[in-house]
Design a protein around this nucleic acid. Structure first.
Lengths: 181, 181
DNA sequence: CGCCATCTAGTTGTGCACAACTTAATTGTG
DNA sequence: CACAATTAAGTTGTGCACAACTAGATGGCG
């Protein structure tokens, strides 16, 4: 390991800070590893889905939308966004493309003209048949068995919950705390 | 859970296929859950980094690049791309922005004019000092201890390796196999 | 030497994520 | 009823990921 130098104009101001800084150097190295792993894993998954979904003419986010619609049949953009944690800025153009592909229709709700109902076309429903093979191929690609997958999913959900909480707190804390000395 | 109908024009052709299809319905449901978990976790991480990195004026991918440069000091775009698994299509504009921000310089290599050396400016080196606090805040946000983080990292790396292999195979298989009849 | 295959960056085009904003409909309140 | 606050969808602008392509440099081979 390549030694702990303090590059450039940056150096600790007192012995106590020096100890603390050494520890933070370790964390910085660890962070590099975690960042990479996470980012790489995320993109690797995306890549596998991309390859497999190409047959269906769907991107990964489009597949996510279709999965919801296949389960729920029809729902307003708002609800769709809540399920997927995506806002209209992402969903509007995506849905427009799905509509252009003939998989969904969008209609203003009669009861509330602000709302837009998204529903599958026959073609969209039919696509589900071809999509049934996707999960098996994904699972095969991971090389994990179902229990491992399930465990990973739970781990990820815990992490997401923690991160969401922390992000919310960090945002309010940003206003309160003068920010790391 | 709304019963297992075979939507649209899709129906099994024989009893064995019916059983297989029922199982694939389960997988489709599981896939929905995994997709969501993974996608949500990825974006949750991104969100936390976004909040924390805003102080430094960096995006998450820019931070990844800076982490490499802080460790290596200087290297050609090609090497940077190998470390981060990113191609020039992503890196070129990103590096241009880092250069505009005054954090890096790009210079054509004298020895090989195809290559561009990326090196930190003084400002870029100095930013490292402010970045030292980032990992601790990220780890805190996850609510995990270091061992958990390390375990997660290893799990993700295994997954990435498996997925990369599978993606490569799937691509060659795509050419060989007539495609899921 | 001359030419072609290969390699490195960079460019272009598509699609997603997200922040900030706009528009139009609805709801709540005086 | 009128008007302000809220809500839903859409739009705009920035940045990233990736595929496909271009331009220029390099290196090997006849």
């Amino acid at each position: 390991m390549a030694g702990k130098r303090y590059p450039g104009g940056m150096s600790p101001t007192d012995p106590a800070a020096a100890a603390a800084t050494a520890s933070e150097e370790d964390w910085l190295r660890l962070d590099r590893q975690i960042c990479f792993s996470l980012h790489a894993a995320s993109r690797a998954f995306n890549g596998v889905y991309r390859v497999i979904l190409k047959d269906l003419g769907l991107t990964y986010p489009q597949y996510l939308v279709m999965l919801v619609l296949w389960e729920r049949g029809e729902l307003p953009v708002k609800k769709l966004g809540e399920h997927l944690r995506l806002d209209s800025g992402t969903l509007s153009p995506l849905l427009k493309r799905l509509e252009a592909a003939g998989l969904v229709r969008r209609e203003r709700s009669a009861r509330d003209e602000r709302s837009v109902e998204v529903r599958l076309t026959e073609e969209g429903v039919a696509l589900r048949g071809r999509a049934l093979q996707v999960p098996r191929r994904i699972v095969a690609a991971t090389g994990c068995d179902l229990d491992e997958i399930r465990a990973l999913r739970e781990h990820l959900d815990d992490l997401t919950a923690a991160l969401d909480t922390a992000a919310a707190e960090a945002m309010t804390a940003d206003a309160a705390v003068p920010r790391a000395e």
